[in-house]
Design a protein around this nucleic acid. Structure first.
Lengths: 97, 97
DNA sequence: ATAACATATGAACAATTATTCATATGTTCA
DNA sequence: TGAACATATGAATAATTGTTCATATGTTAT
């Protein structure tokens, strides 16, 4: 895999890593590691403002890292992709070595 | 792997992803995928200022993604870690799917 | 229809960061 | 020693971004 991807792909790639490059978003993703959670549950778990969580969930959704399901008044978010866990664990390997 | 790491680790993890979250740094890393290169070679390959490359190499070095070797006037950089390729390829998988 | 609740959104602000320019440091060779 | 070259560094600037506050949208039950 020695060929540099096209610039356009590189920008997308950088954007994906940018999404992982924020501790709030990482915490949200970890909250969703096992199960779906509503926005309120996530906010309470992390002791952060509902608005902050909602904004960041939008970033995660735009980048296809989480998906959502509406159930009545609540909206439940869950991981959208198996890559998510793998990418995080790869990064963790690097950090912990 | 359902346990959320300590906050301190999460910050470090976010920092690592932040490093990958910039297209210039990704391009530099790709330039080093196969072989070491001097700062000047990298700058010329990417058609970017020597100073820009040097600044970003420092970021990469601080985060242990590249290492360096001096040879005369030139300094040759190379990937420091097998994780680097793997993390990038994981991200690329996500982008390309 | 209206109240109560859950979530999303827009504007504003503070903080971070990538790049450039100018210059400093370090190395080689005459 | 001094000139030429390679790389690093500091300051300045422009752009991006995370959070908060206030409010809008959407849903349920009465």
């Amino acid at each position: 895999m020695n060929n540099m991807p096209k610039l356009e792909i590189l920008f997308e790639l950088a954007d994906v890593f940018k999404v992982f490059g924020d501790s709030t978003r990482l915490r949200i993703l970890y909250t969703l590691f096992d199960d779906e959670r509503s926005v309120g549950e996530i906010a309470e778990t992390l002791s952060m403002e509902q608005s902050t969580i909602s904004h960041q969930l939008r970033v995660l959704r735009t980048n296809k890292l989480v998906k959502l399901r509406r159930d009545g008044k609540q909206i439940y978010y869950s991981l959208d992709d198996d890559h998510v866990k793998k990418i995080i664990e790869m990064g963790l390997d690097h950090v912990l070595e």
